[in-house]
């Protein structure tokens, strides 16, 4: 294959990664932005979404598209429910204190991971894609499902933007993010906002997982990479900035795809980590974050 089509293929693969990363990292960014909690267990919510999607694929009879549709709705709801429970049982009791919640979410990471190992097992298991379609370009053919992943992630992110920027729920979340005490003085139940935001952040990770699991396999240790890349994206984009998160996800996702295709996946991770280091040194608030 010539260089041009090869580059196009690499960019398209990178866009799939970027779309899933944007969803996962938006959840992490949202939780940090509103709750000021660095959720180290965020990758495990991603893993739970994928594992739950595998169970759904086994339990729901009929064509894979039906199981996929059920998984796309049920798994994020299940993971959101678990996250809300974790918020109630752990984060709220720690009064959302930043240092304590880091330690607590590390504990949560291991609890979820080991629970998945116990209930799901150590195997990596495939989930069938909802449909088999091929996009035939003049130079190569490409999975139609991957195109669907990009479109679906874009639609969810557009919905998230509408929720935050145009709805009353979003206004309440933004007001709470800006000043928790003043929000309370206007009748906003901050505890409910926190629980809802934590659940929404987890649900975004689970949606990303359900979308990607027909391409990657579900495995109880699969939460590590999304967590690391989400942190990289959120730091580069600016903690709590959704716009920054999306731009950084595109940058990291596409560069990861291109570098992995032409060189080595490890080199892509090294360069992304180097970029984080540069951002932390020269622009600690991130590309779009506000200076503290």
């Amino acid at each position: 294959m010539d260089f041009g089509p090869f580059l196009l293929l690499a960019v398209m693969e990178g866009l799939v990664g970027a779309a899933v990363l944007a969803l996962t990292a938006s959840g992490l960014s949202l939780v940090f932005g509103v709750l000021r909690v660095v959720n180290v267990a965020h990758g495990e919510f991603f893993m739970l979404g994928a594992v739950a999607a595998w169970f759904v694929s086994q339990w729901v009879p009929g064509p894979p598209a039906l199981a996929f549709a059920v998984a796309l709705v049920a798994c994020p709801l299940l993971v959101a429910g678990l996250a809300a429970l974790a918020d109630r049982l752990v984060l709220k009791r720690l009064a959302y204190e930043p240092e304590a919640t880091i330690i607590a979410t590390i504990g949560l990471l291991y609890i979820l991971q080991q629970a998945a190992l116990t209930l799901y097992g150590p195997e990596a298991r495939p989930v069938p894609p909802p449909f088999e379609a091929r996009l035939q370009l003049p130079w190569f053919g490409w999975s139609g499902y991957k195109l669907f992943v990009i479109g679906a992630a874009g639609a969810v992110l557009a919905g998230l933007w509408l929720l935050l920027a145009r709805s009353r729920i979003g206004l309440v979340m933004r007001a709470t993010q800006i000043d928790r005490e003043t929000a309370t003085a206007f009748g906003i139940d901050v505890d409910r906002v926190y629980a809802g935001t934590f659940a929404l952040g987890a649900a975004l990770a689970a949606i990303a997982a359900v979308l990607i699991v027909p391409i990657q396999q579900a495995h109880y240790l699969m939460g590590g990479d999304p967590l690391l890349l989400s942190f990289i994206v959120v730091v580069i984009g600016g903690l709590g900035s959704l716009r920054g998160t999306l731009v950084a996800a595109l940058l990291i996702g596409v560069s990861d795809g291109v570098i992995s295709t032409f060189f080595e996946p490890t080199l892509a991770k090294i360069l992304a980590t180097l970029l984080v280091a540069l951002v932390l040194v020269f622009r600690p608030q991130g590309l779009f974050g506000a200076r503290a």
Binding site: R168, L171, V172, R174, A183, F186, G187, I188
Partner: peptide, 11 residues
């Protein structure tokens, strides 16, 4: 407008 909206939400 959004600041006023926050005030209006409750009562």
């Amino acid at each position: 407008a959004e600041n006023l909206e926050i005030g209006l939400m409750t009562r």
